[in-house]
Design a binder for these strands. Structure first.
Length: 283
DNA sequence: ACCCAGGCGGGCG
DNA sequence: CGCCCGCATGGG
């Protein structure tokens, strides 16, 4: 059990994080089950967004607590972060509505695959495609009774044998060719686990060597795969919200939106983005 | 039928 | 460089 402040499991899950989480959230229990490496982890939350308890069960309970801490950024000082990003009534309202919503930190390779699939797509279908890839190509997770308890996300080398046609069969569409390249490139050329999470510029540059990873997807990977809060992914929702809220509804270029987000939220803009994103998608 | 979705790469001016 | 277009697929 972990005592948590400024935490909300529902908002976190519903804000499309991570895309690997499919229908594993239970509203009745306020709980979420997911696979991480060889572990199946279930977290259930009791309390309010201000103060509550997180209960963890797992077949690998020793490492599960640290995993949950990292995954849900439990060490973040949310009061400080809210203070820093609460620059105006727009972010302020989003914080009020989704208080406790966290960014998540996920496996870099898993995040890369998910966000390659995300382009020109919608959350529901992204999660469906990801789910199919896990079911078909993931590794079995064995519980303490020796039974198969689930599937873990396939490593890049596990996907080397998967053809463009196979990915098409999972529903990946025109992104299938990017996935074939990414599996090869991240196995043989770019070790995602050796990149420096803290060097935002260089990290993004290296991620964009992967075909199918451009400015926006690289920002998503930097943010949700490496936990770099300098990233400000600008998708259609965030672009729309920013233009409406900060540019009087005028169409702006991505570059201009990056510039204003840099100025407004500096090194915490990743959190501002997530609140604006979720607010735009739900209200 | 038509529009949209956590964009990107390639081609052209 | 910047701009524009096509792209697989399924749900509303």
């Amino acid at each position: 059990m972990i005592e948590v402040r400024e935490f909300d499991l529902k908002h976190t899950f519903e804000s499309a994080q991570p895309l690997t989480f499919y229908a594993d959230y239970s509203k009745e229990e306020n709980s979420l089950s997911y696979a991480s490496g060889g572990a199946i982890i279930k977290v259930s939350f009791k309390g309010t967004p201000q103060k509550g308890q997180l209960n963890i069960t797992s077949n690998d309970i020793l490492s599960a607590k640290a995993e949950v801490k990292k995954r849900f950024r439990l060490d973040d000082d949310m009061e400080k972060i809210y203070k820093r990003i609460n620059t105006d009534v727009h972010v302020g309202r989003a914080i009020d509505r989704y208080e406790g919503m966290r960014l998540t930190v996920n496996d870099p390779w898993e995040t890369t695959v998910c966000f390659i699939i995300s382009q020109f797509n919608n959350v529901k279908r992204i999660r469906l495609i990801v789910r199919k890839i896990i079911e078909r190509y993931g590794r079995d997770i064995i519980d303490n009774n020796g039974k198969v308890a689930g599937k873990s996300f396939p490593k890049s080398e596990d996907l080397l044998k998967v053809s463009e046609k196979n990915f098409l069969a999972c529903g990946a569409g025109f992104r299938a060719k990017y996935l074939v390249h990414a599996a090869d490139y991240c196995t043989n050329n770019l070790n995602l686990y050796k990149l420096n999470p803290n060097n935002y510029g260089k990290l993004k540059e290296e991620l964009m060597e992967i075909q199918g990873v451009g400015d926006k997807v690289a920002d998503c990977i930097a943010l949700m795969g490496y936990g770099n809060l300098n990233a400000f992914p600008i998708d259609v929702h965030v672009k729309r919200a920013m233009e409406r809220l900060y540019f009087n509804g005028e169409k702006k270029k991505i570059k201009e939106i990056h510039e204003i987000s840099d100025r407004m939220w500096d090194a915490y803009r990743g959190y501002a983005q997530q609140y604006l994103f979720h607010n735009e998608r739900t209200v």
